[in-house]
């Protein structure tokens, strides 16, 4: 059974790491989380991002959500916004695709072209 007292341990443990790094969040991951997105499976996609980023300890990435972007048939839709403001829109996302987007795009800076909206609309 989890107890609230464990939060104190987490606090102590993570405090040092927080002081070491700057709290700048360079990259933003925005998941479409309106009715259309949720029904299409956006929640597991979002949790996959959190899990994958956590595994790689990428605390400079913010995961957030937005409403309907207007392309419901391509949900789950995820936008990855780099620190220079450039935006890549990934469509029909799955937790499996998330692992690749994190490894290739967020870590190595190479856009996964085949998952983007440009590719889907061809």
């Amino acid at each position: 059974m989890k107890s609230l007292a464990e939060l104190e341990e987490i606090r102590k443990k993570t405090l040092d790491q927080i002081n070491l790094r700057t709290n700048n969040q360079d990259v933003r991951v925005v998941v479409g989380m309106a009715t259309c997105g949720i029904a299409a499976g956006a929640r597991p996609v979002m949790n996959a991002f959190v899990e994958e980023l956590s595994k790689r300890n990428l605390s400079n990435v913010a995961v957030t959500m937005t409403g309907c972007i207007g392309i419901c048939k391509l949900e789950p839709v995820v936008e990855v916004i780099d620190k220079d403001g450039s935006k890549v829109t990934y469509v029909k996302m799955t937790p499996e695709k998330v692992a690749r987007v994190v490894a290739e795009h967020i870590v190595n800076g190479r856009v996964c072209a085949e998952y983007t909206i440009a590719e889907a609309e061809k």
């Binding site: 464990e6 939060l7 959190v50 956590s54």
Partner: peptide, 8 residues
């Protein structure tokens, strides 16, 4: 939003 906290 710390990953450890979210997991907990």
């Amino acid at each position: 939003t710390n990953f450890e906290v979210i997991k907990w």
